[in-house]
């Protein structure tokens, strides 16, 4: 059933969307960032504890579709322990992957989002938490919106 959709909704994505990881506020977070997609109402808040150049702890809260929830959940597992520069590099690679389907190097678990590129209307769902992460490590206070991109 729905073979054509399995690229988009991989088991890992369905799993993370139903049981999101690191789903809580982060007491003592020194960076927070909000992402909002005004087209569908999806919103995500990321809480980070950045020490020196490193993401020590990260968590999230929000609501949205399966893709955006899974993207936020997997993002938190991928960014813990990363340096600010690594976060920016990962953002670029994830952005390329969800828009073109091709990934530059091994993206590990993040590779499950490669199928999103076949669904142009859903690219924003996957990338929303990443914009928030970028804003967080860059220390931007303004909420980011999927609609500022264009």
């Amino acid at each position: 059933m729905f073979d054509d959709l399995n690229d988009l909704y991989q088991q890992v994505i369905l799993d993370h969307s139903k049981s999101p990881r690191n789903y809580s506020e982060l007491p003592g977070a020194n960076r927070t960032a909000q992402g909002h997609n005004p087209l569908c109402g999806d919103h995500v808040t990321l809480f980070l504890n950045v020490e020196g150049d490193q993401v020590k702890e990260i968590s999230w809260q929000g609501s949205g579709c399966a893709i955006s929830r899974a993207s936020a959940s997997i993002l938190t597992t991928a960014l813990k322990g990363k340096s600010v520069a690594e976060v920016k590099t990962l953002f670029d690679r994830v952005h390329d992957m969800v828009t073109t389907g091709k990934s530059n190097g091994d993206l590990g678990k993040l590779a499950v989002f490669a199928g999103v590129h076949k669904f142009p209307a859903r690219v924003k769902c996957a990338i929303l938490p990443w914009y928030a992460a970028l804003a967080a490590v860059e220390g931007k206070a303004e909420p980011v919106s999927t609609e500022s991109e264009e």
Binding site: L5, Y9, C40, C65, I67, C125
Partner: peptide
């Protein structure tokens, strides 16, 4: 989520709106 409903329905040829 409504957008997931609409995406899957579209794969079955059904045009819905979600939002």
């Amino acid at each position: 989520h409504a957008h997931d409903v609409v995406t899957v329905a579209d794969q079955r040829g059904i045009a819905l709106r979600g939002g």
